[in-house]
Amino acid sequence: MIELLLEEQCTGCNACVTACPTDVFEAVPGAPPRIARVEDCQTCFMCELYCTADALYVSPDAEGRTPVEPAALLASGLLGQFRRHSGWHEWQGHYPNEHWRMDAIFRLARGG
């Protein structure tokens, strides 16, 4: 579930408010959006992909809350990893989309 919106990193663009498929965030005039409905989070990580400021952190635990430490997260390099590996925005061209290898990987697993 979404655990953190780092206000210092947030640019207030509200992209997460729009992109979150389950409407977890709420825009706040003149301020970063608020995580208003954490219980509706479906742990899909999509908000991170749309956050160009890398200000969001989704914990993989879909069944309960996970306390997180903002400073430790900032230092961990985990913020923005999904977006980077997906080659979105400024990362375009740095991480090629090799999803097409899926077939060959399945074949390899079958020993073919």
């Binding site: 985990l78 999904f82 997906s86 090629p96």
Partner: peptide, 12 residues
């Protein structure tokens, strides 16, 4: 590079 979300739970 194939599926960028698959490793997220493990890494985190």
């Amino acid at each position: 590079l194939v599926s960028p979300n698959v490793m997220l739970p493990f890494v985190r």
